[in-house]
Design a protein around this nucleic acid. Structure first.
Lengths: 161, 161
DNA sequence: CGCTTCACGCAAGAATCTTTCGTGATTTTG
DNA sequence: CAAAATCACGAAAGATTCTTGCGTGAAGCG
């Protein structure tokens, strides 16, 4: 699956544009990348089918929705055997407060990106769910103050052909 | 700006659907949320204009694009006065490897979400750019092994009216 | 009770999407 | 080297979707 695809300059332009505005119409996009609409649509489909484009997502304004707390949690487990790692990973999927979760190497075993309506809800989650979950050793939390950069996943100045 | 909006159940359904598939057509979306296309489009526009929907983004498959390293960096500064924080925040915007950055409270001052083509590129960045940047005290890195959860920003079971 | 306000949905015109097909450039093959 | 095959582009057309302009009915208010 993670086979390296061979993308030309137009494909990279398409990816950059769709990463910036995922709802751009195909005609608008085709104009920006310098080809006509049909081949542009074919390229989009190909990028989707090969899994290079994993999907599209609306970005929401958390504070405006009453979600005032964004935090990251670094989790250390007592035992890091494969089964234990999978068990904890599965557990994160049942916690709605956890939006993204990564298994990491280093001082911690997992990094959790959390969103909660307020500090009380977040603390309740940390104390009653996270820290009291089986096999959890350490929980370090970092409350976010504000986002200072917000780009897409891929920077093109580093990877473009 | 972060004024709390009053959204009804249909608005929440729209947000949930667009967070799951940001490129869904308006007619498809209107069918899913149970209203006709015109009022559905008007709701989308309103959510966009009020800033509740911040934008749309294509999600890319980093490994397929030759980006094999995703890591998080926790940065501690020597001095945390407002000017120094702003200076470092500004600096993160000039680093293409840094995709998202948060100012945080806790043991560290910033959390950086980084993507690089390989370990060498990442280590070069950490040593030559990050750790040697002015005012940087500590750099702790967590290399990601795999993503174990990947939802949108907002969980609706926690906040829906 | 009557007025205002608001959001819905129908309908129609504009824009877009999507397919089909012919052309030219590049590559492969004999 | 020439012929065949492959590939992607772009024009054109039909299907779908977007977008606007009303008309209607339900709530809120004087």
């Amino acid at each position: 699956m993670p086979l390296k695809a061979d993308l030309d300059a137009i494909d990279w332009k398409i990816l950059r544009e769709l990463q910036h505005d995922g709802r751009m119409t195909n005609v608008e996009l085709s104009g920006r990348v310098g080809i006509s609409a049909p081949p542009c649509l074919r390229r989009i489909r190909r990028l989707e089918e090969t899994g290079i484009i994993r999907g599209y997502r609306a970005l929401l304004n958390a504070p405006a929705l009453g979600l005032d707390v964004v935090a990251f949690c670094l989790i250390g487990l007592h035992h890091q055997a494969d089964a234990e790692l999978k068990t904890f990973a599965e557990r994160t999927r049942g916690w709605p407060i956890v939006r993204d979760a990564w298994m990491v190497s280093g001082e911690s075993d997992f990094l959790l990106h959390c969103v909660a309506s307020d500090l009380g809800a977040f603390q309740t989650f940390v104390i009653e769910e996270l820290a009291s979950a089986p096999n959890v050793d350490t929980v370090r939390t970092a409350l976010t103050i504000r986002r200072v950069k917000d780009e897409g996943l891929v920077a093109f100045s580093e990877v473009r052909p």
